[in-house]
Write a protein that binds this DNA or RNA. Sequence first.
DNA 1: TGCCAGGCCCTCTTTAGGGCCTT
Length: 211
Amino acid sequence: MTNAITNTPADTLVVLDFETTGLSPEYGDRAIEIGAVKIVDGKFVERFQKLMNPGFAISGFIAEYTGITNAMLRDAAPCREVMSEFHEFIGNHNLVAHNASFDRKFLDSEFSKISKSYAGSFSCSMLLSRRMIQDAKNHKLETLVRHLNLKVEGTFHRALYDAEMAGKVWLAMLEQISIQTERGKVPFDLANKLCKASKGKVNALLQAHAR
DNA sequence: TGCCAGGCCCTCTTTAGGGCCTT
């Protein structure tokens, strides 16, 4: 399959994924791993992956779910140090995550602890998939990867691998939009609008973008 | 240590309820 995506460097994108101690930073949960890929012109050009020590022991469930153990975190750098490095990595680029509302609240929470912020827009591969891949059994990341016949050669629920896979799903959906609209370039803003569009607005947005 | 949430979306809807998705 040829890649019809011709994003410009201005469309540089960072796809990220957190592994965390739980579901809610409001209840004290912290990040334990961040993984991210930088995509320029539809190509993966840079990767970021770091474990981080949340300052307390993680539960057996999280260890089982992620494969990350307390022993692995014992010598990891603290969250503030890793997140400061990650802040440099993302710059002002636009961001994508699978079920972005989850990753966004952890990104916001961890950045607020070190007085950092970001300027890029945050978009969601899960919301876009609900609109662009309606025949999938469900919209879990692993299901979408298999539905799109993307090569599976890593372990899900680790941050960098999930970020890589979310990036590939994102690019596959941009390609689908590109083919559907007969336009080579799919601006981030269009994808972001599609994520948030009501069912009836999706086709109108695609038609407006089409030649 | 172990507990916990919330945005989005659909429908048997909108003065609501429940499933999906993330860890």
